[in-house]
Write a protein that binds this DNA or RNA. Structure first.
Length: 566
RNA sequence: GCGUCCGUAGCUUAGUGGAUAGAGCGCUGGCCUCCGGAGCCAGAGGUCGGGGGUUCGAAUCCCUCCGGACGCGCCA
């Protein structure tokens, strides 16, 4: 699609004197396919050229009719509408989808860049709730999308394994904990203790001091404190790995906050040497009032570190050791100010990568309209959600496809896919009110719908037995309207990837693949494939396989499995 | 109070300067002697939160008001 747009823009630039690069962005898809395949509104040119838009459009139509690949050009109410030569174009798109679907999606725009993506980052000794789902799967999708676009990507899990909360964990465990009970169900028991700590702290605020005391002990290397802390981490990590395995999520590095304990002094010293550190109420801060921001606390008044300090050290580590020139943080929108402060401090430190830091914010996840709060023990366990979805998938399989092999495996792919897709399909900044009735509905714009479409295409190809034969679109076949609509969708894969990457927004890809599926299902419904006669049958089989490749790739990019049967 | 974000059909939402505002869920109706009905087709349902402005053209940009969420120094 890009090359044809380019050819059009070049010709229009010649005629109007406007830069071709700007014209490319003006080209759009007409609201109604009867108008044409591509359109260029000519209103912008009117002022400069001192002609009315309708006249410009019709002059351009004459000019463009001769371009290779353009079947028809006509003017309509200030718009220049263009129709492509269907069979030529069908061959080129289907061929690319069959030979190398990667090339259909990617122009390798990220070549030469390394990006560190920070995602998931669950807290040790706390359950993995649905709230953590968003960062985890948005981040995983961004990793795959950027890799597809040619970036070298380092996925980092910035585990919450340090901070005052562990002082609280330790204090609570020493007060009320019992080794035996914790050992049996570590995350759940530790969490119970943590919640109790906050409940009792409401009546006895001195508990907070006790928590801070134990955190200070931890930072100063107190032996028992460190042993307990290590234990909490081992147990939690084991539980998290299970969840990641179910979700199909992977990381290149597990680098928790504690990893930076010995790397913060360098940053603090540098801040001090550059005169950026000032004392304020006993704490050491970077004053950001010149940028209309509250100060960034670097050291608390009791001398212990804080998350901003760790984020600064982590940023340097990702740049220097991991080689990243671009840093991406997939973290909730409520931390927006924090990241603005950290990025500003990096800039003040003279880090050249500071301008290539992005906070990919997303909206809060609520449950039945209520805010989830780990402190108050209000959590929805992700494990429970996934299990329910998998059960529902299994139930539907038994109802609709009882002879399917590997029902458990497929039910897992479909159930998990439903949960992931439900989260990714909406623009990430919106709040999500998690409701089982939505997640467990497998009709309409859902993961199972996309997977079903993929399985259906696979089924046709299996029956045709053509998997080994080279397929392609025979040029003597003219695509009909339904086939053409599908081909045009496939042709937009590259635009979908580029936009998803530029906006760090997987929902772009999720919506794209929904459009592909709808176009394919329409095609499937209207046009017999296997019973067609040969040039047509070959064409439709090729289109089916091209579509299957595109769907499979898109599903992979947003982190869903693509079962061949379901 | 200040700052940021969000407000589009009953619900979830797409579209962020261009043609009659597009989908899905739910609701109503139609389509399996035919490649998988987790599908396809059609219908009802919209003062694009209100008002003002900029523009040939505004859901989209600016101002203002209303509603909601989040944030605003030692939690992350």
């Amino acid at each position: 699609m890009k090359s044809i747009k380019h050819a059009i823009a070049t010709a229009v630039a010649e005629h109007t004197g406007f830069p071709a690069a700007d014209i490319v962005n003006l080209i759009e898809y007409p609201p109604n396919p009867e108008l044409g395949d591509l359109a260029l509104p000519c209103f912008q040119f009117a002022k400069q050229l001192r002609k009315n838009p309708a006249l410009i459009a019709s002059e351009l139509a004459d000019k463009l009719a001769g371009i290779d690949g353009i079947g028809n050009a006509n003017a309509q109410g200030g718009y220049l509408n263009l129709t492509l030569e269907r069979s030529t174009y069908a061959l080129s798109i289907v061929d690319r989808a069959l030979q190398s679907v990667h090339d259909l999606f990617s122009e390798e725009r990220g070549t030469g860049h390394t990006v560190a993506v920070d995602y998931s980052a669950p807290n040790i000794a706390k359950p993995f709730g649905v709230g953590h789902l968003r960062s985890t799967i948005i981040g995983q999708a961004i990793v795959r999308l950027m890799r597809e676009d040619g970036y070298r990507v380092e996925g980092v899990n910035h585990l919450g394994d340090w901070g005052t909360q562990f002082g609280k964990n330790i204090a609570a465990y020493l007060k009320w904990g019992d080794e035996e009970t914790v050992r049996k169900n570590p995350v759940r028991e530790l969490f119970k203790l943590y919640v109790r700590f906050h409940e009792e702290a409401r009546e006895h605020p001195e508990l907070e001091d006790e928590g801070r005391y134990w955190f200070k002990q931890l930072e100063e290397g107190h032996e028992q404190a460190n042993r307990l802390w290590r234990w909490f981490i081992d147990e939690s990590l084991r539980a998290f790995q299970e969840t990641y395995k179910t979700l199909g999520v992977e990381f290149d590095h597990y680098l928790g906050e504690s990893f930076y304990n010995d790397k913060m002094d360098a940053i603090v010293d540098e801040l001090r040497a550059k005169g950026l550190l000032v004392e304020d109420d006993g704490a050491e801060v970077v004053d950001l009032s010149a940028y209309d921001m509250p100060p960034c606390i670097i050291k608390k008044s009791d001398g212990t570190s804080i998350y901003a300090t760790r984020d600064l050290a982590a940023a340097d580590y990702r740049h220097r050791v991991l080689g990243a020139d671009t840093l991406v943080y997939v973290v909730g929108a409520e931390q927006k100010l924090h990241f603005q402060q950290v990025f500003k401090v990096l800039e003040l430190l003279g880090r050249d990568y500071a301008k290539r830091c992005t906070h990919v914010a997303f909206g809060l996840m609520k449950f039945n309209g209520e805010r989830l709060s780990t402190r108050r023990g209000h959590v929805v366990y992700l494990e429970d959600v996934l299990n329910k979805a998998i059960e529902e998938a299994k139930r539907i399989i038994q109802e609709k496809n009882p002879n399917l092999a590997d029902q458990d495996g497929v039910a897992r792919s479909v159930g998990v896919g439903a949960v992931i897709f439900n989260d990714l399909k909406t623009y990430r900044i919106h709040e999500v009110d998690f409701r089982y009735e939505d997640v467990l509905n497998f009709d309409g714009e859902t993961g199972p719908y996309v997977q079903y479409t993929h399985a259906r295409a696979c089924s046709v190809l299996r029956k045709a037995g053509t998997d080994a034969q080279p397929l392609n679109w025979p040029t003597q076949v003219q695509p009909d309207d339904v086939e053409w609509a599908l081909i045009l969708r496939l042709a937009q894969a590259g635009e979908a990837l580029a936009r998803a990457v530029d906006e760090f927004d997987p929902s772009v890809m999720a919506r794209y693949v929904l459009h592909v599926c709808h176009a394919f299902n329409r095609f499937y419904h209207n046009n017999p494939i296997l019973q067609a006669d040969d040039p047509l049958r070959a064409a439709r089989l090729a289109l089916t396989q091209a579509t299957r490749n595109v769907i499979a790739k898109a599903l992979y990019l947003i982190g869903l499995d693509a079962p061949q049967e379901m």
